[in-house]
Design a protein around this nucleic acid. Structure first.
Lengths: 147, 147
DNA sequence: TTCGGTGCAAAAGATTTGCATATGT
DNA sequence: ACATATGCAAATCTTTTGCACCGAA
């Protein structure tokens, strides 16, 4: 079984919270880790279904919420209204191609610094943020130019 | 009638597109302009209903989409999944208080510059962006500290 | 044996659509 | 007159919830 670290983290979380270690939770976590991209519950449901057709929608939705609680996943809301998940990691923002849907992560120290400055200016205490740049990626720009 | 400029802009857009100038469209636009904050279609529906109880949900939803087309309003998606609208104007981002819901706009040249730099680095052509900082505003921070 | 988990179906909440009717142009 | 707009109800789409049954501890 791959993903030993994450599987152990899940087991630990479940143990500490008197929750049960089930096949379904393991399957959803594995599918999520293997996806290596921003996936929706629907996406994961489809993947899990291929091998285990008796797993329900509900379980996938509930398990993703659980993984967020456990600190293994982060919820993301892009502009199409569908909730997507990514593997938990900090300090990054997103470039979203509105043609092909590709999502590219980026980091920028300068922006982080500016955010702190803005927060100070308005007396806000920042807990989290969203920063998404929407447009066309290199490939899609080229296609548009040729047309 | 207040909002002469915007009313004229609406009339112009309607004329140019073979659309009709109706009482409902005027009412929704007036309610939107008077709100002076980020409002949802539901909010506007409630306001319009007070004076004109026979206006339907559907008309408000459709009219807000029309106002976006006409360049009078901009659609915003914050993290609660409800679509809100603001008066069209550029170059600003948002501070959102997750306790009281207050939304404060801000502008930052430094961030805009960084965005251009990031776009260049990844070969993206940026068309629009979202940048929202979520946390506690001054008042809500103070209340939390006192507790 | 005992709770928590699962899966189905039904509910929920926001928004859209079909359709008969009403209304600008 | 004619095409578009309206308003209701029903449909949609994503996500959540109720509940009887199942299964991990």
């Amino acid at each position: 079984m791959a993903h030993e670290v994450e599987m152990r983290a899940l087991a630990e979380y479940l143990g500490q919270h008197n929750l049960k270690h089930t096949k379904q939770r393991e399957l959803v976590l594995a599918a999520f880790l293997e996806a290596r991209r921003h996936v929706s519950s629907e996406d994961l449901y489809q993947v899990v279904r291929e091998k285990y057709p008796n797993v329900g929608y509900t379980t996938v939705y509930r398990t993703m919420k659980l993984l967020v609680e456990a600190g293994l996943a982060t919820e993301r809301h892009f502009d199409d209204g569908i909730t997507r998940y990514e593997i938990e990691h900090e300090h990054h923002d997103h470039l979203v191609c509105i043609k092909c849907g590709k999502i590219q992560e980026f980091e920028c120290r300068m922006i982080e610094e500016s955010q702190r400055e803005i927060a100070a200016r308005y007396g806000f205490r920042i807990l989290r943020h969203r920063h998404e740049l929407y447009g066309h990626c290199t490939e899609c720009s080229e296609i548009a130019d040729r047309a």
